[in-house]
Simulated assay, not measured.
Amino acid sequence: MDNEKFKLSIKKWAEDDRPREKLLQKGKLTLSDSELIAILIGSGSRSETAVELSKRILSSAKNNLNELGKLSVSQLCNFKGIGPAKAIAIVAALELGRRRRLEEALIQQKITSSNSVFEMMQPVIGELSHEEFWILYLNNSNKVIEQFQISKGGITGTLVDVRITLKKALEVGAVSIILVHNHPSGNLKASEADKQLTRKLKIAAESLDIKVLDHIIVTEKSYLSFADEGML
């Protein structure tokens, strides 16, 4: 048989090289991303092992799990060796990872820095293809009373109603607020509209003894803080 065409199944690999056995014997941290995905899909095809197939899928997503998480079931099924069941397993596992990150952020709801806002909101809006504007309402201990989506827009912008924003603050008894919105383009530069809205909300909030602590622009991988940049 042609060695170039012959591929050993995972069951015939040395025990050290099998992802499941490796996880059991050496722990989950020793496995690469492709080995973890190989465990999810279980098997490859006649021409490649599960790990090789996983490496090919990861490579198409720039070896980035966030990018992989954006692929749909139908897109994953375009890979030879991946059927609906395997595609669903990958999508479900990555969605669980996203939700875990979100829950970890929500457990620590006290805002201590701009980064803590990013960690809280990135799983919510960081990977969206449209823009959303959220308000974090805080008590006097800087703990989040409520997260509220004030508006949802298109790719390039969204509208924010100052009256609704502050009415909600009074309803929940907030003493301060943080403005958060995403830039689907990945651009971290604040637009003139972003700056004008921040000034407008800050002036209106001050008349009610409510402080605007920050305005955070979130992208998939990073953020811009008005407070950190001295823009408030």
Rank of each mutant, 00 (worst) to 15 (best):
N139D: 15
I217R: 09
S185M: 11
F79P: 04
A87Y: 00
K143F: 06
E21K: 15
T219M: 09
H130W: 09
T112N: 14
I88C: 02
A14C: 04
A89D: 03
L232H: 09
I178P: 02
E119M: 14
L31A: 10
I125R: 00
W134P: 06
R101C: 07
G153Q: 01
K55M: 07
L23K: 13
N187R: 14
P84D: 01
P84S: 02
A193E: 11
E220W: 01
A89C: 02
A92Q: 05
S116Q: 10
A174N: 02
E220L: 13
E192L: 08
T30D: 13
A205M: 05
L201C: 05
Q122R: 15
D2E: 12
S60W: 10
I145G: 09
P184F: 08
L166T: 01
N3T: 08
A85V: 00
I177H: 00
I135Y: 05
L170E: 11
S72I: 06
K62Q: 13
R163I: 06
K26Y: 15
L96G: 07
D228H: 11
E15S: 13
K12Y: 14
S59K: 15
S74G: 01
A227Q: 04
G186I: 05
R163Y: 02
F6L: 14
G157P: 03
H181A: 09
K195D: 03
I178C: 07
E95M: 13
A205K: 05
T156I: 10
G83W: 00
E15W: 05
K200T: 13
S207R: 08
G42F: 01
L53T: 02
M121Q: 00
R98V: 12
N140L: 13
E132L: 02
I177S: 01
M120Y: 09
L136A: 08
N140H: 15
F118E: 13
F6R: 15
N142K: 07
L36H: 10
K62G: 06
L102T: 08
I217E: 04
S34N: 13
R20E: 11
V91Y: 00
Q25K: 15
Q147N: 11
V117K: 03
H183Y: 09
A190T: 02
Q122V: 10
I39T: 00
A38H: 03
S141Q: 13
K7D: 12
K11D: 13
L138T: 04
R20K: 11
L188P: 04
L24V: 12
A93V: 03
R163W: 04
S9P: 11
G81P: 02
E131T: 07
S9D: 14
S60H: 15
V162N: 07
F226D: 00
Q75V: 00
K195Y: 07
A190L: 12
L159M: 09
N64D: 15
V172D: 05
L68H: 07
L58P: 06
A85S: 03
R100F: 10
H215P: 02
L213A: 07
L232C: 09
E192S: 11
Y223V: 06
V160W: 09
L224P: 02
L65W: 08
L76F: 04
S114V: 02
V162E: 10
K167S: 15
G230S: 12
I217H: 01
I216E: 02
Y223C: 05
L94G: 08
K202F: 09
F118W: 08
M231N: 05
E192V: 08
E48D: 05
I164G: 06
F148L: 04
C77S: 01
I41V: 09
L31H: 12
G126Q: 04
F226R: 01
G230H: 07
I37G: 01
A193I: 08
D2V: 08
